[in-house]
């Protein structure tokens, strides 16, 4: 596999206090679809779709949002090369369902999907779901690492060639290629949780979807260490990406580190990008919101033309793993 060019991606969720959305257009999905298509046209690798179970931040008159994973699935048949990366919150949602939903998203997009895992740290998310108390950051991130672990095991629980359709014996699957995961983890309230498996969904198209984690202001980077070690892609704020990238790559040398930067700022200049690349940063996520995405992506590509390269029409069959330069996913249970 060739070395990937500098990754440019866009976060198209409305930015609180910046993007004013028109509810009639926004909740039909039209604006999100247009943003994804514009990002695709401009050559972005993927779009991020934020989500949480807490009270939505106000964005114009509509302090609302749509479920990100389903929006991503809905975008699948309406796009051709760009990948979609929704957020899944690990604190209240069942780990088994996060495994099946993400695997299904990969099937729905022909391998053009990733998933960003993050805990729900707010009290209002706990009140909305009503099952568990509000967690603090450290145990919630520790649980996130466990969730990533069990989700990866669920993805592995069907070997790629489990479906055999053997007419001679009447067997649809070779059950020796299906695996109980028998996972035991610790939740954010220090209680054990278990998942039996196998998944109900066959192995995802990519084997494993690229797993994203992001360092947000609500927790110190150290709290994320376990999750970072399990991740493929780590998003860091542009303001501190230099020192943080060094730490992240020390914990997980194969991580793809991306800097998250406000698309309206002029912070992206060739010298800064060159310094980022020196410490191992592989690309940027532009905080574009849902509007003017194409312009922002093209502007970023124009800053670093020699890194981005000229290939603006990636193979329509290319998976997100391939676009990020990740190696093929291995299966822990195969040949075991």
């Amino acid at each position: 596999m060739s070395t990937p060019s500098f990754v440019i991606a866009a976060r198209i969720t409305p930015r609180p206090g910046i993007d004013r959305v028109d509810p009639a257009k926004y909740f039909s999905g039209a604006a999100v679809r247009q943003a994804a298509l514009d990002a695709e046209t401009a050559g972005a690798a993927f779009v991020l779709l934020d989500d949480d179970l807490d009270t939505a931040p106000a964005a114009g008159p509509a302090a609302g949002r749509l479920s990100a994973l389903q929006t991503a699935a809905w975008l699948g048949p309406q796009t051709s090369s760009i990948a979609v990366v929704p957020t899944l919150r690990t604190t209240h949602t069942e780990p088994f369902l996060m495994g099946t939903e993400s695997a299904s998203l990969d099937w729905a997009t022909h391998g053009r999907a990733g998933v960003l895992f993050a805990p729900s740290l707010g009290a209002d998310a706990a009140a909305n779901v009503g099952r568990r108390a509000t967690p603090s950051a450290d145990p919630a991130w520790a649980e996130t690492a466990d969730v990533i672990d069990v989700v990866r095991r669920l993805w592995d629980s069907w070997e790629a060639d489990a479906e055999i359709r053997d007419q001679a014996t009447g067997r649809f699957v070779d059950r020796s290629k299906l695996h109980y995961v028998d996972f035991s983890g610790t939740d954010s309230a220090s209680e054990e949780f278990t998942v039996k498996g196998p998944s109900i969904v066959p192995r995802p198209t990519q084997g494993h979807l690229p797993v994203f984690v992001e360092h947000a202001p609500d927790a110190p980077l150290e709290a994320l260490r376990g999750a970072v070690e399990q991740a493929d892609v780590v998003l860091l704020p542009a303001e501190s990406v230099g020192p943080e990238a060094v730490k992240v790559l020390d914990w997980n040398p194969s991580a793809c580190v991306l800097a998250v930067i406000d698309a309206d700022a002029d912070a992206l200049d060739p010298e800064i990008v060159a310094r980022w690349v020196q410490v191992g940063v592989s690309g940027v996520v532009l905080e574009t919101g849902p509007y003017d995405v194409e312009l922002a992506v093209r502007a970023a590509a124009g800053v670093v033309p020699e890194l981005v390269g000229t290939d603006e029409s990636p193979d329509e069959q290319s998976t997100l793993r391939a676009r990020l330069g990740l190696p093929p996913a291995e299966n822990r249970y195969a040949n075991a």
């Binding site: 389903q70 699948g76 695997a103 299904s104 729905a108 479906e163 649809f172 109900i200 969904v201």
Partner: peptide, 17 residues
Amino acid sequence: DLDVMGRPDTLTVLSAV
């Protein structure tokens, strides 16, 4: 192991459809 088995998540599929 004799029947068709496994299926994608209901709401994810319906959203794609």
